[in-house]
Nucleic acid binder design. Structure first.
Lengths: 233, 233
DNA sequence: CAGTGGTCTAGACCACGAT
DNA sequence: TCGTGGTCTAGACCACTGG
């Protein structure tokens, strides 16, 4: 009843636990592992995909397979600050702004804002890293006329803080939707994985004290890099 | 830049949207689809796996591929009642009890209960169906001495209601942890999918008014059968 | 029992990363 | 440029499902 997957798992765990490989270090090449295990590359890759699903390893486009570190814990029911949460958990967070532009938004966006088709929005796209590993791509949409001058500010930090400090807007309510979704090329690229790979898609609608929608936010997380905590009473 | 995946997706979407195939109906056999598309079975299966990731189709062990219905919306931050929520969304929910036994619990369980190694628990395992499709396996652990006689009750409904009606215990607080996890055979079997398939694992710690842990609950959901809503202020 | 999906072999070519 | 991962071909055998 032992499958070749079990062999692969055992083998990789040995490589890791022998102390030879620490978190974020690269595994041997697929062809070499397949040789060591006497299986075909396709079988080996099936196994690695499963190990990825267990959070043991992760991949990067055409660079190889790496030992996965501990999961990052996020709390979607909080006005999270990515940077401080990451540091609390012993990660070194960084952010790269992929793009910023003004646009007439897609239907799902302007209808969420309860606005009409011709209304203008800022779109901001960013990648978030933990210890140099890209783990999330984020798309934010904010009404353009309300936040004029936004592009002049430092956009690598927390949007919540920018809104507070520069526009005196406080987010006090959120509605999140969480689902598994495949990545389009536009998001898969910055994450360094192939298009079509699975992700955890978190859509946040963030409201101010007047119950007005302020920030329409979509996050695509590597599904095995994180776990979520939600507490309620 | 068109990949064979795009062809497969287009082809399957045509089959569905042509009205020939409604929700929960079976697709043609893999070999037949591969023939129609002039690709190998392994390539076709890669494509179907991706379509599954997009929530378009789902599989059942050695039975075939089916057209996926709409996602079921769950709210982990609520004392959910699976049956009534499902009916609200137009599904026909059913439940099967897989097993019920008294045991000395695993370490993660008795330590969550802040109890010692020799304490006894009831373990209840159930499968939940929506329109005959298995979508979730649930494992509940409850302290045995507090809920004696539990096995004599009807266990196919809501645990929350049983606790209320028969033991006058009210759940007023919950802590959830949500993560992607691969399925062990014990859970994959009842869901009709192969071991190692991905799932969304929701662990709930459910407390009464005295902040005592009452119910230690683990749910394994088909990741593409559901989406989650979380609201906060 | 026939046909299906699940798993595996043994190759191949291409595009991109590192150097 | 060389080696890597990403993708694909063309088969095979087994375990299980369904009639």
């Amino acid at each position: 009843m032992s499958s070749s997957y079990d062999d692969i798992k055992t083998h990789v765990q040995l490589l890791i636990s022998n102390g030879r490989l620490a978190a974020n270090q690269k595994l041997p090449a697929e062809r070499e592992l397949a040789e060591q295990l006497q299986v075909t590359r396709i079988t080996l890759r099936d196994g690695l995909n499963r190990l990825e699903g267990e959070g043991l390893v992760y991949r990067q486009n055409r660079r190889g397979w790496f030992v996965a570190p501990n999961r990052f814990v996020i709390n979607p029911a909080q006005k999270v600050n990515f940077n401080s949460m990451a540091r609390q958990q012993g990660f070194k967070p960084t952010t790269k702004v992929l793009g910023f532009r003004k646009l007439t938004a897609r239907r799902d966006i302007y209808s969420a804002f309860n606005a009409n088709k011709s209304s203008k929005y800022f779109e901001m796209r960013r990648v978030r890293y933990l210890d140099q590993r890209a783990v999330m791509v984020e798309e934010s949409y904010l009404p353009a006329e309300r936040f004029s001058g936004l592009s002049d500010l430092d956009l690598s930090g927390s949007v919540t803080e920018i809104l507070q400090d520069s526009y005196a807007v406080n987010i006090i309510q959120e509605r999140c939707n969480i689902q598994g979704a495949n990545l389009e090329l536009l998001c898969a690229g910055p994450l360094g994985i192939p298009a079509g790979a699975p992700s955890l898609k978190i859509t946040r609608l963030r409201f101010d004290s007047g119950e007005h929608l302020i920030d329409y936010n979509i996050e695509y997380w590597l599904p095995h890099a994180i776990e979520m905590e939600v507490a309620t009473r």
